[in-house]
C-alpha cells in the first residue's frame, strides 16, 4: 500500500470520526461527551461545526484523535487476561471510564 492511499485513509477516518462524534453529541450530549471523552467546550465546538469545516479539520496527515489509554501496562493487563473475554471488555470499559476523567 503506498503512502497516498494511507494518507487518504487517515483523512477518511478523521472525517468519519468527526461526523460520528457530531451525531452522537446531537443524539445524547452527556452520553456522547462520556464516550468521546471531550471537555464541554470541545464538545460544544465540534457540534457547531459545518460539514465543510469538519472536512477541513480532517484533511491532515495525522490522526485527529488518539488512544485514550496512556499506560501500556494497563492495556497489557486487559489483553492478557486469560478468563472469558466478557470480563476483559468489562475491565477495559471500567479503565476507560477513568481515562475519560484524566483527560477532561
Amino acid at each position: 500500500m503506498n503512502i497516498e492511499e494511507l494518507l487518504e485513509e487517515i483523512q477518511d477516518t478523521n472525517l468519519t470520526y468527526l461526523l460520528l462524534a457530531q451525531r452522537l453529541l446531537k443524539e445524547d450530549y452527556a452520553a456522547a461527551q462520556f464516550r468521546l471523552k471531550l471537555t464541554d467546550d470541545m464538545a460544544k465546538l465540534l457540534m457547531s461545526l459545518s460539514t465543510r469545516q469538519l472536512s477541513r479539520l480532517a484533511r491532515t496527515n495525522q490522526f485527529l484523535f488518539r488512544l485514550c489509554f496512556d499506560n501500556a501496562d494497563q492495556v497489557q493487563k486487559i489483553v492478557g487476561e486469560k478468563r472469558d473475554s466478557a470480563m476483559m471488555q468489562t475491565h477495559a470499559s471500567l479503565l476507560m471510564s477513568r481515562a475519560a476523567a484524566a483527560h477532561a
Binding site: 462520556f34 464541554d40 470499559s93 471500567l94 476523567a101
Partner: peptide
C-alpha cells in the same frame, strides 16, 4: 465499579 465509575465521570467531570 464499572457503573459507579461511569456515574462519577458524568457527575464530577461533566
Amino acid at each position: 465499579s464499572l457503573f459507579y465509575g461511569i456515574y462519577q465521570t458524568l457527575t464530577q467531570e461533566q
